[in-house]
Amino acid sequence: MATAEKAKQKSDVTLHYLRPGKKFPSVWCPGCGNGVVMGSLIRAIDNLGLSKDEVVLVSGIGCSSRLPVYLDFNSLHTTHGRALPFATGAKFAQPHMKVIVITGDGDALAIGGNHFIHACRRNIDITAILINNHIYGMTGGQGSPTTPGGTFSTTTPYGNVEKHFDPCSLAAAAGATFVARSTVYHEPQLQKLIGQAISHRGFSLVEAISNCHTYFGRLNRKGDAVAMFDAFKERAVPVGKASKMTEEELEDKIVTGVIHNVEKTEFCDEYQKVVDAHMGEK
């Protein structure tokens, strides 16, 4: 197919995945990166040729967690911080389903932190897309576990005295077997990484750095959506190049690409071996 033809086919592919009967446009602020991630996810699923019936989108609570309702998949909008255990139940009960969790920095790393590290440790075949906008958007701009030290939010009005952690290194340390990061500016890369994550057998994390110009941007003078997109472009450093840079050089940089990728036995597969070995015993 000529690239132009492919371009045409791809540009409206997202429209075939929108949930019938749901009102558009989305609830998100104009220019919110969540919409870009939603487009990336759709195109990644489309490229993989997954059927709509086999995809389960699970989310917690927060701006990013409003994503699943907009898409024509099985969608499960759960409670704050609990998307991963809900997803674990759905996946473990129906292992043939492709279970993808949509979560945010607050949802996954603050209230959901305990479930996050255990889902990684278990290496259950779930893809978690963590949309990191460094703030609690839904509740109006409070600091989150990824809000950088010194930056402002409605609960760090004098500058955040706390340090933030990096979800990717946390996930890799906890046992996730595929970890990658990109930004909403680098949509083609984000789409590719999401596709790789979904195909990977085991727990996959894709961190999508996103803009919240309504709160983080405004409270820290980072400008509007366009300005924050530009900043992502400037700050991004491919993982290969970053490995040759010092910590100081990497200060405030966003290391993008596949950060961790190993093959390990997967939770549902291992449990199935137990079932196969003991089925029918009295």
């Binding site: 132009a4 371009a7 045409k8 220019g31 919409g35 949509e187």
Partner: peptide
């Protein structure tokens, strides 16, 4: 030039390319 940058970054899928 149908470089796709506009519609891949549209958060609301409000742009589609018409190129034949």
């Amino acid at each position: 030039t149908q470089c796709t940058l506009c519609w891949i970054h549209c958060p609301d899928f409000a742009i589609t390319s018409n190129y034949k």
